[in-house]
C-alpha cells in the first residue's frame, strides 16, 4: 500500500518509542547484571569489589531463597486455579439470559479496578481480621473460634486476596470469548443431540482454549511480581512464610542494602519471567498473522 515516501516517514515516526524502550530496557538490565557480580552494599558503598558468582551462590544457599521460589509458585498456581476455574464457571453463568446483566457485569468486574494496597487493606481489616472481620463475625455467629488468617495461613490468605483481584479479569476475558462463539454452532450441536456437558466439553472448551491460554500467561506475568498485597498484609512473614521472590529481592535490596545480592535475585527473576514470556509471545504472535 505504501510508496517509498511514506516508508521513510514511517521509520522516523517509530524512532522515539523504539529508542526510549531500548534504553529503558537495556540500561537498567545491564546495570543489574553488572551489580550481580559485585560485592556492593549501600551501607558500605566505598568498598565495591568483583565477587564473581558469589551473590548467586549466596542466594542459592539461602533457605529463604527456596522458600520464596516455592511461595512464588504457590501464589501463581493457586491464583490461576481459582481464577481460571471460577472464571469459566462465572462466565458460563453470565452468558445465560439474566435480568440486570449490565449491573451484574459491573459488580463482577469491579475488584479488578481496586488498587492492590486497597484490596489488601480491605481484606486484612474488613474481612479477615480475627477481631473485627466479617469472617470472624460469621464464626462467632456459629459459635466457632475466629481464625487469625494472616498468622495461621499467611500464604493462603494472600492467594485469596490476589485471586479476588484477578477473578474479574479471567471472567471478563472468558465471557468475551464465550460470546464470540457462533450461536448457530451451539444450535447445530443441540440439534445433533449433544447435552449441556458434551456441548461444554466438545464445543465450548475448545473454543475457549485460546482465551484460557491468554489468561494464564498474562496473569502469570503479573502474579510472578505480586508485591503490594504482601507488603500491606503480612510483610512477608511470619518469618519467610509469605515472602515471594519479588518480595525477597525488595527485602535484600532496600531493607538489607545488599545491592549485589538483590541484583542476582533480579537476574533469576528475569530468567523465570522469560520462560513464561516466551510462551505468551507465541500465543499473542499468532494473532498477528491472521
Amino acid at each position: 500500500m505504501a510508496t517509498q515516501n511514506t516508508k521513510t516517514l514511517a521509520r522516523l515516526m517509530m524512532a522515539p518509542s523504539v529508542l526510549l524502550l531500548l534504553v529503558w530496557m537495556i540500561v537498567p538490565l545491564a546495570m543489574t547484571l553488572w551489580f550481580s557480580f559485585q560485592n556492593y552494599n549501600l551501607l558500605d558503598p566505598s568498598n565495591v569489589s568483583f565477587t564473581g558468582l558469589f551473590n548467586y551462590q549466596f542466594f542459592y544457599t539461602d533457605p529463604a531463597f527456596f522458600q520464596s521460589i516455592w511461595n512464588t509458585l504457590v501464589i501463581v498456581v493457586g491464583v490461576l486455579l481459582i481464577t481460571v476455574i471460577g472464571g469459566i464457571a462465572i462466565a458460563l453463568l453470565l452468558d445465560q439470559p439474566i435480568f440486570g446483566q449490565g449491573i451484574v457485569r459491573i459488580l463482577v468486574i469491579s475488584p479488578f479496578f481496586v488498587m492492590p494496597p486497597v484490596a489488601a487493606l480491605i481484606w486484612k481489616n474488613m474481612i479477615m481480621h480475627p477481631g473485627y472481620g466479617v469472617l470472624a463475625d460469621i464464626n462467632k455467629f456459629f459459635g466457632l473460634q475466629p481464625v487469625d488468617w494472616f498468622a495461621r495461613y499467611p500464604l493462603f490468605s494472600i492467594v485469596i486476596i490476589v485471586a479476588w483481584q484477578w477473578l474479574p479479569f479471567a471472567t471478563l476475558i472468558l465471557l468475551t470469548a464465550l460470546q464470540s462463539l457462533d450461536g448457530e454452532q451451539k444450535e447445530a450441536a443441540e440439534m445433533d443431540g449433544a447435552n449441556f456437558l458434551s456441548r461444554f466439553i466438545y464445543l465450548v472448551l475448545p473454543h475457549l482454549a485460546r482465551a484460557i491460554t491468554v489468561v494464564i500467561l498474562i496473569q502469570t506475568i503479573f502474579l510472578l511480581g505480586v508485591y503490594a498485597e504482601i507488603l500491606v498484609t503480612t510483610n512477608g512473614g511470619p518469618g519467610y512464610a509469605s515472602t515471594n521472590l519479588a518480595f525477597l529481592i525488595y527485602r535484600t535490596a532496600l531493607l538489607g542494602y545488599d545491592v549485589g545480592g538483590a541484583s542476582a535475585g533480579g537476574i533469576i527473576a528475569v530468567v523465570l519471567a522469560n520462560i513464561v514470556a516466551f510462551f505468551l509471545m507465541r500465543a499473542v504472535g499468532k494473532n498477528l498473522d491472521r
Binding site: 543489574t32 508485591y227 519479588a246 538483590a262
Partner: peptide, 8 residues
C-alpha cells in the same frame, strides 16, 4: 519483572 531493575 520490575524487581529485576529495582536496584539500578
Amino acid at each position: 519483572p520490575a524487581v529485576a531493575v529495582l536496584v539500578p
